[in-house]
Design a binder for these strands. Structure first.
Lengths: 341, 341
DNA sequence: CATAAAATTTTACGCACGTAAATTTTTGTA
DNA sequence: TACAAAAATTTACGTGCGTAAAATTTTATG
């Protein structure tokens, strides 16, 4: 490593005996220059650790290789996991991802989109807040920037959507629960933040009717992103009021189920499928923590890898100019049998 | 809103009847221009929604207002919470934060620092991986960029450190446990990723000796960031082998405790402080889920707000040129009594 | 009201790189 | 070996803004 510091691409090009634009071309795509030229540049790179100035690069570029990843709430491990897997895939695809969180707030979500615009992103992968989202702002954003939505649909916004096959999730679980015990009642939030909840609820009703059972839905009051708290408090109330019409309770999602398990524990209700158990509780999503609840939670696993992979794949296609019709991909979930149901 | 699109600061300045540098000054600090000038700019802003080009702004600036936030593992809710609170504070302080995760991997951590360099950050708030970190790379980074470490110390690296007062955490809990029942044994990882673990272990020994008890440490094998899994598997083994020397088990951190609770449940050991309970389990950190374990976990709460606030405060001071000696701030934790101990 | 000092604004230049068009070099073909 | 086509490289200009220094305006003082 030479001690002479290379300040800019001009100097670096001089050290490698080339003109700056040739070097610029190399950094844009190393295979776009002659092998002999490439070798000269890469030899120089080992001697002088020069790196192009990111700001200067992007300033005058029509299309950057920046990609935005937007999630509604990063402190929710489900979205932490999405962010992680998607980020790795974007890097693998040669893009520079940046992760943003809406912090559970619609205004913040709009602000994130605004600051994202400033990055001139080649594309964006976004899991919207859902019901709370400012549809107009998102729509406007999608019109300007190639955007693939994931996890939660927002009408037909964005170039494509990839998410869980929610009806299949619930169908799978209801089938399983009915096969192995009393038909479940359904525990959900009255005003869910996320449209997936509605699909699950609907699928619950349909599946129950198909199987010849009467669907029974218990709705929990409360808003916001503290799902466990809501599941706990409202679950406690429901237990006390005898509101659960079945000894088997299917929750709209794992986080609600985690709260409900705490409520059941407090009430001394043994949860599980054994003869000594009072009730069964199941969730949906396979939250990273569900493996460690007491008892471990039976649930439907999101296929994080598949969703991330297909979302990235679609985004890259759209960025590269594929003029796809608006497409929606629904990824099936997998039944994860644990002790709670 | 006029339909005439303003392309750059030059045009925008013309529309507001000023020169571009004056407008530039305004965007750098709105109070640095005369009130009458400011009004003209802000009036123009309502008519033409112009925004300065971020890349052009930062390219030629000695010091940007970018701030990097680096955490070892974003899918860990503790770090999700740190990232969230710190991000909000940075924004409030007028900086543009970007969140990065090392994904639990040292090479990735180095890569993050490298890409951070490219952003010419004014400063960085970093929670290092800990033991696994490439000390040299971090040291080199800290020499170039004002960096405040948080959560986990790395020798005396960085301009300052803010984190939990680990000895106080453990002291508080050991005191409490001894006061209310049998003295605890200590459950920790044999090769913890994080140096905080060592401090807690040491404090456990000291406090036990101070109180006239014999410290007993049980170490769990396993590496990586799947703490719950390690707590569960090794906890199960320890229960079966009768390795726990006390009916009260203090865990090095909540995630380990969460796994241990699952193991105890599986073994049919009732956890809690009641007469009908077999063992007591306590954690440290107040993980967001600890509130919803079965039973809810007694723990020591990290003061996320205080740590975030002080870390940001110190970073801003360093950025603004304060030539502080290397300072370490240890934030006290608060005993959170729940049902597990 | 004159004048110096302070605050504000403008002039003038630089930054580090992208990129279309022009030039040079290489490759393919007879 | 000649020569056109293709590929690679260079020339020349553009991008949007930062910032030091100069010019102007405003404020303070007598």
């Amino acid at each position: 490593m030479s001690n002479h510091r290379v300040r800019n691409m001009e100097e670096f090009a001089a050290m490698s005996g080339l003109s700056r634009p040739t070097v610029s071309k190399y950094f844009h795509n190393p295979e776009s220059v002659r092998p002999s030229t490439r070798k000269r540049i890469e030899d120089a790179l080992t001697k002088y650790d020069y790196r192009p100035n990111v700001f200067a690069m992007n300033q005058n570029r029509k299309l950057t290789r920046n990609v935005g990843i937007v999630v509604p709430y990063l402190a929710d491990p489900v979205f932490g996991e999405f962010a992680r897997t998607i980020e790795l895939r974007c890097v693998a695809a040669g893009y520079s991802p940046t992760v943003f969180s809406a912090h559970g707030d619609a205004d913040h979500e709009v602000a994130v989109l605004e600051s994202l615009r400033a990055l001139k992103p080649a594309g964006v992968l976004m899991a919207p807040l859902g019901r709370g989202s400012d549809h107009r702002a998102v729509e406007k954003f999608c019109a300007d920037v190639p955007t693939v939505l994931f996890d939660s649909e927002l009408r037909d916004l964005g170039a494509a959507f990839v998410g869980a096959d929610n009806p299949q999730f619930t169908r799978l679980m209801v089938d399983y629960l009915c096969r192995t015990g009393p038909p479940p009642c359904f525990f959900e939030m009255k005003t869910p933040a996320n449209p997936n909840a509605g699909k699950r609820s609907k699928s619950y009703v349909q599946t129950m009717e198909r199987l010849g059972h009467t669907p029974e839905i218990i709705q929990a009051a409360g808003t916001g992103w503290g799902f466990e708290e809501i599941g706990y408090k409202e679950g406690l109330r429901a237990f006390e009021a005898g509101a659960f019409t079945s000894d088997t309770i299917l929750c709209s999602n794992d986080r609600l189920a985690i709260g409900l398990l705490t409520a059941a524990y407090e009430k001394g209700l043994r949860v599980g499928r054994g003869d000594d158990c009072a009730i069964r509780i199941a969730g949906q999503d396979d939250h990273p923590f569900s493996r460690f609840t007491c008892p471990p939670l039976t649930t439907i696993a999101q296929d994080f890898e598949a969703i991330s992979q297909q979302a990235c794949e679609l985004l890259v296609a759209v960025i590269e100019g594929a003029d796809l019709p608006h497409e929606k991909r629904f990824i099936e979930g997998r039944l994860v049998m644990r002790e709670s149901a």
